[in-house]
């Protein structure tokens, strides 16, 4: 029951393994784009390593990638995309359908470290919320994005996206986007906890919808060992996905809003929350439950 306090650097790093991995992943993605523009990284002559940015890119001059949400907005704005962009959007969409939609948010999005920092500071200094906003506001913003794209004839979110601004301006040169980022940071820090990523961002909402069908990687929930201590919900940026009653029924964190960030797994004192390959989760939980009922009957005997 007692939480094993991490001692020593190695234990501490191990405790933070997913956060570190996520930062490395976010940094490497930015670095590949940045290096290709500024240091001319190429795999062969005139074949750039990773050209473009998160909206649209080409890897080793071969694999096109495009933000499916941006592609959808452009289509609604009245432009029929070229094959390359459609293929790119399909590749990215396919990837995130496999690993979980909001894996983008936790592992690729450049805004995530900013809002994570705000969230961490907020917990640390115990800043109370100014007001409460329903978490599903983001789905309304998502629908509004699509409607406005039709009405205005431009990709409505892409033209104001702080995600796009940050990524573009780090790679292609600074501008007013830095101020927008600061605004988001302050909003998350002083106004609303996890305000941008958890309440407003329509891109996150889009990936939440995609994430409903994640067939591979999920956090497994073992109800036989869980003591309902609530450590997981304290660190989770989307604590509504850790509704333990529903998790007991399903046996894993099923919500599309879970970004597979892995914060909950190292803090769980009972290891009730662990990443697992989804098709194996059911079998594992059945076995765990079986062994519990066996030990209970043995005790009774």
């Amino acid at each position: 029951m007692s939480h094993p306090a991490p001692s020593g650097l190695a234990a501490r790093l191990w405790q933070w393994r997913y956060i570190l991995l996520r930062r490395v992943s976010q940094f490497i993605i930015l670095l590949l784009f940045f290096g290709t523009v500024h240091w001319g990284w190429e795999v062969a002559k005139d074949v750039p390593l990773l050209s473009g940015n998160l909206s649209g890119s080409k890897f080793i001059g071969l694999i096109p990638m495009a933000d499916p949400f941006a592609a959808l907005q452009i289509f609604l704005a009245g432009h029929v995309l070229q094959t390359e962009a459609i293929l790119g959007a399909a590749i990215v969409l396919g990837f995130y359908i496999l690993v979980g939609g909001r894996v983008f948010c936790a592992w690729a999005c450049p805004v995530n470290p900013v809002t994570d920092l705000a969230g961490w500071l907020r917990t640390r200094f115990d800043i109370r919320p100014t007001f409460i906003l329903p978490r599903n506001t983001r789905y309304f913003v998502l629908v509004l994005t699509l409607i406005l794209s039709v009405l205005t004839g431009v990709a409505a979110f892409e033209w104001v996206s702080p995600v796009g601004m940050m990524h573009r301006e780090i790679i292609f040169g600074l501008g007013f986007g830095a101020a927008v980022l600061l605004a988001i940071f302050l909003f998350d820090l002083f106004i609303l906890k996890h305000g941008w990523c958890g309440h407003l961002c329509p891109l996150g909402a889009f990936w939440s919808v995609v994430g409903k069908v994640n067939p591979t990687l999920r956090v497994r929930f073992d109800k036989t060992t869980c003591t309902h201590c609530g450590e997981c919900a304290k660190v989770c940026p989307e604590p509504q996905v850790l509704n333990l009653k529903l998790l007991e029924e399903k046996g894993f964190v099923f919500s599309g809003e879970c970004s597979n960030c892995g914060r909950c797994t190292p803090v769980c004192p009972e290891n009730s929350l662990v990443f697992d390959f989804k098709p194996l989760i059911r079998a594992h939980n059945a076995q765990a439950q079986g062994s519990v009922s066996v030990s209970e009957t043995q005790r009774r005997v």
Partner: peptide, 27 residues
Amino acid sequence: FNAACIKCGQCVVACPFDTLKLEPAGG
């Protein structure tokens, strides 16, 4: 063009003379 451009900057990367730039926010 406004409707179609995805603002990815691949044209900027492809330009051998560094002619092209991407407009940042607020420009």
